[in-house]
Design a protein around this nucleic acid. Structure first.
Lengths: 206, 206
DNA sequence: CACAGTTCTGAACATGCGGTCCACAATACG
DNA sequence: CGTATTGTGGACCGCATGTTCAGAACTGTG
């Protein structure tokens, strides 16, 4: 008994995400979004509320997608867990367009200017950390990683590297260098390789 | 033969940096800067040009400081190079105030919206990468790291982790977890610990 | 003391913003 | 077909922004 919508809500969210990702929250005007989505401002406000609410919606959508995408890494043989982590680190390098990660932008731009954004961002990072931890645990079960190691911390290294690589890439760092960094992170050759036979347990600090 | 300035230029840059770091570029109005620096808007324009030019100045100042600060890590005995990298990773965690890194904000917010910003940011990251590489080389000479390893890539892992940890911290992640991550990154226990005797040379990919 | 040169100040301006509103169009149902 | 109901898009408002400018304030020199 009423006129149906001419647009798919999720399509609008996706288009808005594009815009926010490219120009940031403060850098994006409602009119920009209107142009990007094809909806007029009136329709936007009618469907989503104000700019902030729309951004929340977009961010939540993005985080969910990122979480689910990472979660798919868990599927597969345990003895290839490290390879899946490696491909996760390398994946962003393939996107030649230098669009960055919305989550990164959101935390940098308004994580503690807006509580809801901060909450959602933190939740996303914790979910991603959990996924990385599980992958490391897979690798441990497969005998690829010391079973006594702190799986969460190791997963955190991958997550932090992932996030850091994205920043370096955004700044324009040479992709070839980044690939070597990603490789080194997963290889975990990192800084262990002390010339001591067998495993070396770290001697705390100084 | 002229009215002297009532302010020290560098003091203004520092105050402006504070403001930009807290509220970002788009989120900071010229009046905010005026309030933060104590200068009237007219004086700001007279001394620095427009808002963008002032930001460039601030960013350059910040990058230089960050580069020099990192460079001091190079001083010290080579067999403690890893400890210095560790403390570098942990340093940001001590600042309880959740102010983030201006460089991170700049790259996230307008790295490729503004060429000059992108150029300076990339230069800063490359300098930092170089510093990390040298530290790893110190560790190699001290016998703490496999001399055959790719020092630049290993330095890059530290740099990326540093950058990533900053993002996680900004989002509000538990500092204790972050310390464990930083520790794991430097320990480099990371993902190597395959249960193979002696060094294991990686077998390329899949 | 008068002048010139420079800086500071604060008001004023144009612009673009986020947000609101409303007349019209399009639909579904009786 | 008529009517109630909802989506639509553009006009509109108040406000904050980045920027400019004319004049006051100040210092050093002749």
């Amino acid at each position: 008994m009423a006129r149906p919508r001419k647009f798919e809500e999720h399509d609008v969210v996706v288009a808005a995400r594009r815009q926010f990702t490219e120009t940031g929250y403060h850098g994006t005007s409602v009119e920009d979004i209107s142009r990007a989505t094809g909806l007029s401002k009136g329709s936007l406000y009618g469907a989503f509320g104000d700019k902030e609410a729309l951004f929340q919606r977009v961010l939540d959508d993005y985080c969910t997608a990122a979480e689910e995408s990472a979660a798919t890494l868990l599927d597969g043989p345990e003895d290839q867990a490290l390879e899946r982590l490696r491909s996760w680190l390398l994946a962003p390098l393939d996107h030649v367009d230098r669009r960055g990660c919305l989550l990164a932008r959101a935390t940098a731009e308004l994580a503690w200017e807006d509580d809801a954004v901060a909450t959602r961002s933190l939740a996303a990072y914790e979910t991603l950390l959990d996924t990385c931890r599980r992958l490391v645990e897979q690798a441990q079960r497969a005998g690829l990683v010391d079973p006594a190691a702190d799986a969460e911390a190791l997963g955190g290294v991958v997550l932090a590297t992932h996030r850091g690589l994205e920043a370096l890439g955004k700044a324009g760092m040479d992709p070839e260098t980044m690939k070597r960094i990603a490789g080194a992170a997963v290889d975990g050759i990192a800084l262990t390789a002390a010339p001591v036979r067998g495993r070396r347990r770290r001697t705390a600090s100084a």
